[in-house]
Simulated assay, not measured.
Amino acid sequence: MTQQPMSDARRPPSGGPKAAARNRAALIAAAREVYAEHGLDAPLSAIARRAGVGQGVLYRHFPDRAALAAAVLEENVRQIERAAQETDLAGLLGVITWHLTESAAFIGILHTDRTDAVPSYAVTLSQRVERALRALLPGDHPLASEPDDLMIAVAMVSGAVTGPTPEHRERRARAAWRLLGVEVGPVRPVEV
């Protein structure tokens, strides 16, 4: 028996552009969580399930794994740029630390060495994080004495962010900042 297509009167509404934007945001949030728990090789089906959408919706927004990871990183950097406009250096470092504890992929862009072997979007994202930090960094701050000191310190802290839970990773990150003599504000995401 062949099924007849649903008539427009019986077809459930798709939700339109608002639903598409919600689904995309849910997929990015779910990807950040799943990547933090299982790494960048986590099954895309787990991300779709966590977001509460089907895999078709995931692929409609992100044609492949790389596109989804890039979207997560872009969202991380946007939140950091927004925090740079709303807080001081300690507050911004708290937001960056939150991203370090929640997003394994984010750590990777902070270790970008800006060579030809690295995708250009990763270099651009790393530079945007550095610009956001530099905008709030006083000239007499210890991390402002040498041009590379700021991002080396961030990379050092990100290297210390290991452990089984976000709480454990946060404790390690705070200890690393403390050892560098840097004050960090509350470790929190940017309110969306």
Rank of each mutant, 00 (worst) to 15 (best):
Asn76Asp: 15
Ala20Asn: 07
Gln4Thr: 10
His168Trp: 04
Pro189Asn: 09
Val34Ser: 06
Arg10Leu: 15
Val184Trp: 01
Thr112Glu: 12
Pro138Asn: 07
Ala42Arg: 08
Pro147Asp: 09
Val187Phe: 02
Val77Gly: 02
Val154Asn: 04
Gly56Val: 05
Ala104Glu: 09
Ala132Met: 05
Val192Ile: 07
Asp41Pro: 03
Pro13Asn: 09
Phe106His: 10
Arg60Gln: 14
Ala90Lys: 14
Leu92Cys: 07
Arg114Gln: 08
Leu44Ser: 02
Ala84His: 12
Glu74Gln: 15
Ala21Gly: 09
Ile96Asp: 00
Asp64Cys: 07
Leu92His: 12
Gly139Gln: 10
Leu143Asn: 12
Asp8Gln: 09
Arg171Tyr: 04
Val123Cys: 04
His99Phe: 06
Arg171Asp: 12
Gln79Asn: 05
Thr124Arg: 14
Leu68Ala: 13
Leu93Asp: 05
Met1Cys: 08
Ala25Trp: 08
Ala71Met: 01
Val182Pro: 02
Val72Phe: 09
Ala31Val: 02
Thr97Cys: 12
Thr162Pro: 00
Thr101Pro: 04
Arg49Pro: 00
Ala132Leu: 06
Glu81Pro: 01
Ala21Asn: 08
Met156Thr: 06
Gly159Met: 13
Ile80Val: 14
Gly108Asp: 15
Ala90Trp: 14
Leu136Ile: 06
Arg171Cys: 05
His111Thr: 09
Thr87Met: 06
Ser120Asn: 05
Asp148Leu: 13
Arg171Ile: 02
His38Gly: 04
Gly15Asp: 00
Gly163Arg: 02
Pro166Ser: 11
Ser14Ala: 12
Asp149Val: 06
Asn23Ile: 00
Glu191Ala: 11
Ile80Trp: 06
Ile28Cys: 10
Gly16Arg: 04
Val72Arg: 03
Arg60Met: 11
Asp116Leu: 12
Ala84Tyr: 13
Leu68Asp: 15
Glu183Val: 01
Ala132His: 08
Glu33Pro: 01
Asp113Gln: 04
Arg114Trp: 02
Ala31Asp: 02
Val123Lys: 09
Ala69Ile: 10
Glu130Tyr: 10
Leu93Pro: 06
Ser45Gln: 04
